[in-house]
Simulated assay, not measured.
Amino acid sequence: MYRTVKRLGIPDSNIILMLADDMACNSRNKRPGGVYDHPDKSVDLYGDNVEVDYRGYEVTVENFIRLLTGRVGPDTPRSKRLLTDDKSNIFIYMTGHGGDEFLKFQDFNEISSHDIADAFAQMWEKKRYNEILFMIDTCQANTMYEAFYSPNIVAVGSSKKGQNSYSYFHDNNLGISVIDRFTYYNLKYLENVKPGSSLTLRDLTLISDFFGAEQNIELTIDPIKLDNVNKNESQIYIHQIPLKV
């Protein structure tokens, strides 16, 4: 999402990027300095002139909570502070390995849904935000915001409780899955959005509802009699959608 919000006019001074940052310059990366969302290498997820504020071992649950609540050390530079007030609208995007009400931070510690909920409550009490858009892409993502109890928060997740969030592209050179389907299709949609567009969050969620990893969908131009479909199959057949062949 860093590439997208920056392209749409949000400057680095208004972005705080927390990233492991261990793949762009990995010795196995055939295109040093970039990480791509598709085999055709058309979209560099890093974008141009990436500025990572928290990297490597700085990306911890403690630092994330301190960042949100403003309880950082006095020697913390401005680039690592969330300098917001009661008029600020904040977009928070998180992704990684997760499960029922937890998200891993680099596989050695976890943040729970209650940790985030309590942090948002502190932010509201301290007048650190006006509205928050919280987006998360992980397995059972929706459980990460079920504990929220503060006002003016809109949350979007890639999967329901008990559901997985599947990867879209596995980079064989790096040996990792670079991007999940939910994020890939959201980025694909947002790449066509221009600054000043009148599109709303509703338009975005309609796209992600269809392309999210919640169901296996097969598109066909041939009508199918549902009476002949095995009820044990998890496929959904959609023949009403016009397709270009």
Rank of each mutant, 00 (worst) to 15 (best):
D21A: 08
D22R: 01
D22N: 02
A24K: 03
A24W: 02
N26I: 03
N26C: 04
S27P: 02
R28K: 08
N29Y: 05
R31D: 13
P32E: 13
G33E: 02
G33D: 02
G34N: 05
G34K: 08
V35I: 11
V35F: 13
D37L: 07
D37F: 08
D37W: 06
H38Y: 11
D40Q: 10
K41F: 00
S42Y: 06
S42P: 04
D44A: 08
Y46P: 01
Y46F: 11
G47C: 10
D48A: 15
D48K: 13
D48I: 08
V50L: 15
V50Y: 01
E51N: 13
V52I: 12
V52W: 07
V52E: 02
V52F: 02
Y54C: 03
G56R: 14
G56P: 12
Y57M: 14
Y57E: 14
Y57D: 15
V59W: 01
V59K: 06
V59N: 12
T60G: 01
E62S: 13
F64D: 00
F64W: 04
I65Y: 11
R66W: 00
R66D: 15
L68E: 03
G70W: 05
G70D: 00
R71W: 05
V72N: 05
V72P: 00
G73E: 15
G73Q: 11
P74T: 12
P74N: 13
D75S: 09
T76V: 05
T76P: 06
S79Q: 11
L83Y: 02
T84I: 09
T84G: 07
D85T: 05
D85R: 06
D85S: 14
D86F: 11
D86R: 07
K87Q: 03
N89L: 06
F91C: 09
I92N: 06
I92D: 04
I92K: 09
I92F: 01
Y93G: 09
Y93M: 05
M94L: 14
T95H: 03
G96I: 14
G98V: 04
G99I: 01
G99K: 08
G99Y: 00
D100K: 04
F102T: 00
F102I: 03
L103R: 02
F105M: 12
Q106Y: 12
F108M: 06
F108R: 07
N109F: 14
I111F: 10
S113Q: 09
S113A: 09
D115L: 01
I116M: 06
A117I: 10
A119F: 02
A119P: 06
F120P: 06
F120L: 10
F120G: 11
A121N: 08
A121T: 13
A121E: 14
A121G: 08
Q122W: 15
W124I: 09
W124L: 09
E125I: 11
E125A: 15
K126T: 12
R128L: 08
R128G: 07
R128Q: 10
N130W: 10
N130G: 09
N130T: 09
E131R: 12
F134Q: 12
M135Q: 05
I136L: 09
I136H: 01
D137M: 03
T138K: 05
C139L: 02
C139Q: 03
C139S: 14
Q140P: 04
Q140K: 10
A141G: 13
T143N: 01
M144S: 03
Y145M: 08
Y145A: 01
E146Y: 03
A147T: 04
A147W: 07
F148I: 15
Y149H: 10
Y149R: 13
S150V: 08
S150D: 01
